[in-house]
Computed example of a mutant assay.
Amino acid sequence: MTASQHTIAGTVLTMPVQIRKANQHMAMFSVDADAAQRMIDYSGLRVCRYLPGRAIVILMLMHYIDGDLGRYHEFGTSVMVNPPGSNASGPRALGSAGAFIHHLPVDQAFTLEAGTKIWGYPKVMADFTIREGRQFGFDCSVDGQLVVGMEFRRGLPIRLTPRQQAQRTYSYRDGVTRETSFEHTLDGVRNRFGGVRIWLGDHPYSKELASLGLPKRAMLNSSVEHVQMTFGDAQEIS
């Protein structure tokens, strides 16, 4: 079978897209499931209610260092959702859940075009301020307005998930919901319960995060020193 190709800004990308090196900082929050559902109702997907009345939202900063889409920062807001047609609930439902990508600001034009055209991700241009040191931190701003700022206390080298994983994300754009499968390998993983400070700005994205009850204590924060990823084509599901 011939691999599919996409032309982005004059560059031909042959699928699957390869990310050879990236690092990651992630925080997981337990939020009101009805509030999360209202936020993503437009997608046609249903949030995964891992506990009665509760859903999981993940805020993640990725720094892509070497890959087919170039070098860039990306901030994501994702909600854990059931596969289409599933009404599963309870802790075990998370095993089959995927991540619906609701916000995805980036700081480079090439990945913005690729992300929107190939996968239907909600990428917009943003500015990032990164703070290295004893505590990693960042600010993300869109159109000159602060969206979110976060600081992460360093975790311990405790692995809670397999080193190699196959997962899927969901996106919605131009009236179409899409599913994208990907594989990733994680090395240099550190985890910590809580350990996150978060603050919100005045951007409309900030108000959506506030509707979920943020800022609040994180369930978990995780950092990964070396991420490798492989993304296939998106599949339309509705």
Rank of each mutant, 00 (worst) to 15 (best):
A93F: 01
Y121C: 00
I158W: 09
F231E: 03
P122E: 04
L94C: 08
R49W: 06
T177F: 00
E208Q: 15
A114I: 05
C48P: 09
M229H: 04
R38T: 09
K216D: 14
A88N: 09
G53Q: 03
V142D: 04
V189R: 05
R46I: 07
S171Y: 00
V17G: 13
R49P: 07
G115A: 01
T77P: 04
G70W: 00
S222M: 09
A109Y: 13
R173F: 01
L69K: 03
D41G: 06
I65M: 14
L160A: 05
M150S: 11
T230W: 02
R154S: 12
G120P: 06
F193Q: 14
F138T: 00
P91N: 08
V124G: 04
D32H: 08
V106W: 00
A126P: 02
F193I: 14
R163N: 03
G85Y: 14
G137E: 08
G76Q: 10
M150V: 11
H226M: 12
V224T: 15
F231Q: 00
D41T: 12
N221L: 05
R71V: 00
S211Q: 11
R38P: 02
G120K: 00
R217D: 07
V79E: 07
A9H: 13
L212A: 04
P84M: 04
N23E: 12
A210E: 15
D202M: 15
V79N: 11
G201M: 13
Y50K: 11
D143T: 04
L160V: 11
D233C: 14
F138L: 06
G10H: 02
K207M: 06
T230M: 05
A97P: 10
R54H: 03
F152H: 13
L209V: 00
R54P: 10
V196I: 11
I118E: 10
P83Y: 10
F29R: 08
E132V: 13
R159H: 08
P91M: 14
L13S: 02
G85T: 01
S96R: 02
Q108L: 12
E113S: 09
